[in-house]
Design a protein around this nucleic acid. Structure first.
Lengths: 154, 154
DNA sequence: ACCTTTCACATAGCATGCTATGCAATTTGT
DNA sequence: ACAAATTGCATAGCATGCTATGTGAAAGGT
């Protein structure tokens, strides 16, 4: 019985492991920068959509940000608690609750986006424009591969 | 007052946003494959180290996997609860508790690593070997940039 | 020896993400 | 018109990750 198999799994070259590590670091760096604004990463992500399109429903956000409905419901509850959004029942569909930004949330756009750009610069700082584009494109392709769950798995 | 600024933050081209999205998809795909084995993603990550080096301490794992000590403590508690590890107090240092795999955990190595490889293949399926290496290297560089928090920020 | 500092770990509290489930409102099929 | 299916959202329960804090054991300085 061989304890170290012929083809050992090397986590330092595993896309999944590295993706997790990178995402944790991004979240930490972002969080420490937007915490002074009273924001957390998932709230910032949600605001990115609401800053460009106010009055969306929860299911709109679920679709655009590709998170589960329950996750978004909880994030929105915390944002309402923190005075970032208001939820008003849709006039035509009593099930839906449209989401509107408060003045406070609108005011946070610039500093928060700057913080995020800063973190991106920190990650990509050592790369030229070509390398950055290649990395972004590569991640986007990986996302596509992972999304087509049922599709042909090579 | 311009509601849509000249340089809008495009989340679909933001490394941080994409990193988060990719990591969530990786975790989902991995989890659905290793759940039948009774494993969760962070447990698998921890096992990757323990499979190659049994008898580590909690702080060894913290250092190798770059997670916070409290995070690792909780993950190890769940792994102990689930019969994957045993913790025995170090003979020479009464503070440390060395971590040993159970037979059950040892038996899970092959199927779990195969599941992870399958997910990696799913993500990288459309790329040739060069493209895969470039993506892995790019992520590794981003990780380095994000880790040197205090270092020169461009 | 003794006091301070450091180290290894545990715990509390919170945010984010998931699955599973439930409920009420709308839509659909007949 | 009405039963069945679908839709929009809430909640419970859990895993993973963080910061902050506490505790007991070991190490170091005097």
């Amino acid at each position: 019985m061989n304890n170290t198999p012929a083809d050992p799994f090397d986590r330092t070259r595993s896309a999944g492991y590295l993706a997790n590590h990178m995402a944790r670091l991004f979240a930490q760096r972002l969080h420490e920068r937007i915490r002074p604004l009273g924001l957390a990463p998932a709230q910032f992500m949600t605001l990115l959509e609401l800053w460009t399109a106010d009055g969306l429903t929860q299911s709109d956000l679920v679709e655009r940000l590709d998170v589960e409905q329950a996750t978004m419901a909880n994030t929105l509850s915390r944002m309402e608690r923190d005075g970032l959004i208001e939820r008003r029942t849709d006039e035509r569909d009593a099930r839906a609750r449209r989401i509107y930004l408060t003045a406070r949330a609108r005011a946070l756009r610039k500093p928060a986006e700057e913080a995020a750009s800063e973190v991106n610069a920190m990650a990509l700082g050592s790369m030229d424009q070509d390398e950055r584009t290649q990395l972004i494109d590569g991640i986007a392709r990986a996302i596509n591969g992972l999304k087509n769950n049922d599709a042909a798995e090579c």
